[in-house]
Design a protein around this nucleic acid. Structure first.
Lengths: 182, 182
DNA sequence: ACTTGAAACGAGAACCATTCTCATCTAGGG
DNA sequence: CCCTAGATGAGAATGGTTCTCGTTTCAAGT
């Protein structure tokens, strides 16, 4: 229950794993968007909040609270509070991995672009990926139809690919060892 | 934090919301399959365990621990232990709804058939649904391709339609009131 | 610059779904 | 009938997350 972590935050966004729908904003653009949204609500965009947003903006995957705490050096309670506020304003999205006991957080889709996740059943890591637009379109259509039959109002969908990540495949001995979890 | 619940367990499986891929087994078949699988592992198929399986088999949706406790009249710790055992043996699957703080449980896909969920962001309820097979096939193909590029080994996928269920749409005043949660 | 009220912060307590413990009960084989 | 491994259930313990509250920071008005 005490996994080491080794999160690599790329210094630039070149050649990244995911470029969600081509609508992914860069870190500066994200800061601007967040600042504006908070400004409208008279919520200060403080240093701590900036650092949390920066970490989320650079990560190519949803992060756990502890990962964020480590990367921002902010106290636990501040990280939780910051995430709660950002979530309430709709700038951050909380998600859970069935195979991990920790919640993970990522920026909202309108900042990051619509995407899905490769969810490792071993270490709990989630990596952003995007589907071809035509598949996505077919899917949306099918889901809309299905939902309508059940009188269900669709807001969006969540699609995770469950399996084993490259790291855990290479090193199958330990459970989630030397991999980022927690 | 104290939602009433009103779970309706249909007495028969006629005309149900979901008939997963046509491969859904009926309650008796499920009991048989579970009994065999447990027997192979020298795990007794006791009364409590049967009742939990029966409840899960009849529900057309993943259930929370408290729902199961209510419907089986079994003590909390027994429900948790039973679910843990069944999960370990691969007969039960645990899943989490980003919008609910409670884990939900359903029978494994080889008993229930492959399916997805309508996940209500308001009350947390999840309802089983199935996609047209051609959509499912296209999706599988796209996901396999994607995963391969990332050296990710695919075990399956999870697709939730997020939105508002019919009940919560009709009665938008209270938060998840008169609906099944917990 | 100085005051002031509102917002933000941080450390620790509290919460609560879930897991663990352990004493007791039960079923099936010899 | 006895024996023992497995099962049960009540309550304690765990731990991620939330809440509390005294302190600090910020921005606006003076």
């Amino acid at each position: 229950m005490s996994a080491r972590r080794r999160i690599v935050v790329p210094d630039d966004g070149v050649g990244e794993v995911s470029s969600p729908h081509g609508s992914g904003a860069d870190v500066d653009e994200i800061h601007d968007a967040v600042a504006e949204r908070l400004g409208n609500k008279v919520i200060r965009y403080t240093k701590t909040r900036r650092s949390v947003v920066a970490v989320l903006a650079r990560a190519r995957q949803p992060l756990t609270v502890d990962e964020i705490r480590t990367m921002t050096a902010a106290p636990l309670s501040s990280v939780y509070r910051t995430l709660a506020i950002l979530e309430e304003v709709g700038l951050v999205h909380r998600l859970t991995n069935d195979n991990s006991e920790y919640a993970r957080f990522e920026l909202a889709e309108d900042l990051l672009g619509h995407h899905h996740h490769l969810a490792c059943a071993n270490c709990g890591t989630m990596t952003d990926v995007t589907l071809p637009t035509n598949i996505e379109a077919d899917l949306d259509r099918a889901l809309a139809l299905l939902a309508e039959q059940q009188h269900f109002t669709v807001d969006g969908h969540r699609l995770d690919i469950i399996g084993t990540c490259a790291t855990c495949t290479d090193i199958p001995r330990a459970q989630g060892e030397s991999t980022s979890d927690l």
